[in-house]
């Protein structure tokens, strides 16, 4: 399906260089935020929480949650800002006029989001070693979840960037949908801590399965069956990817 590999690599390189050249704004802030979360919630407060029922320390519990949270926000922000700015300045035409297929265009733009998500996610994991030794229990599963989750939110970011007409609209999905769902998805708490009614509602929150898939990969502990988490993650990755390719194919807000 890739007939122009040099083209895809060129676009991927451009997207990756773009965020790396401003790493102080794109890579280091989530690492700093994680450091503070881990210290305040994990060490200062978490050491006073009895979490023995889960088989983990509270710090060990929130590390995979923080990895997921920053993986999601980094992947989403990268493609959103890159594509929206390209539309805003209209230099998206450089890509649209090229012989890249729509599939290849999405692949190239995706590379930046996935690379940023992966770097930040692994960076957060690295930071956690300052506080606790947390060896990864299932590395291949972790790789699977990191890749699928970064694909989901890189594609969601592209869809958001195509939908948005101005900078205000650009942040709507992130502020009002993604961040609340991620936080309610179990970054800082297990399902068992929630009231019965909220627990049932949480079962319909897809972020819950993504967070728990990551948590199982790192710690071997999860609130939900692993297979369900993996299938939801894979289905969402494929669904958002092909939906984005479709938007490029029909030229949604790209062609007049």
């Amino acid at each position: 399906m890739i007939t122009n590999p040099i083209g895809v690599l060129a676009l991927s390189k451009r997207e990756i260089v773009r965020f790396l050249s401003v790493a102080s704004q794109t890579v280091f802030p989530p690492l700093m935020a994680s450091l503070l979360f881990m210290y305040i919630f994990g060490v200062a407060i978490g050491s006073r929480i009895d979490f023995s029922a889960t088989g983990l320390s509270y710090l060990g519990f929130i590390v995979p949650g923080l990895m997921t949270m920053h993986l999601i926000s980094s992947a989403y922000e990268n493609t959103t800002s890159s594509l929206f700015i390209a539309r805003w300045h209209n230099h998206i035409q450089e890509v649209l006029l090229s012989p890249l297929s729509y599939f290849e265009m999405v692949l190239g733009l995706l590379a930046g989001g996935v690379a940023r998500g992966v770097i930040v996610c692994l960076g957060v994991y690295g930071v956690s070693w300052l506080f606790t030794a947390l060896p990864v229990q299932h590395p291949f599963l972790l790789l699977f979840f990191i890749v699928t989750i970064s694909v989901i939110f890189s594609c969601a970011g592209m869809m958001g960037a195509l939908w948005a007409e101005d900078f205000n609209m650009l942040s709507v999905w992130s502020i009002y949908v993604i961040v609340p769902l991620v936080l309610m998805g179990g970054v800082f708490h297990p399902m068992t801590m929630l009231p019965e009614a909220v627990r049932h509602i949480s079962r319909f929150n897809p972020m819950h399965y993504l967070v728990n898939g990551m948590r199982y990969s790192v710690t071997g502990v999860s609130d939900s069956p692993l297979l369900v988490c993996a299938l939801i993650s894979l289905a969402l990755a494929l669904g958002t990817f092909f939906a984005t390719v479709y938007m490029f194919r029909v030229g949604y807000k790209l062609r007049t």
Binding site: N4, I6, G7, L9, A10, L11, K13, R14, E94, V95, S98, P99, L100
Partner: peptide, 8 residues
């Protein structure tokens, strides 16, 4: 980059 998109 533009050349790259064209497979150069």
């Amino acid at each position: 980059y533009q050349a790259g998109y064209f497979g150069i």
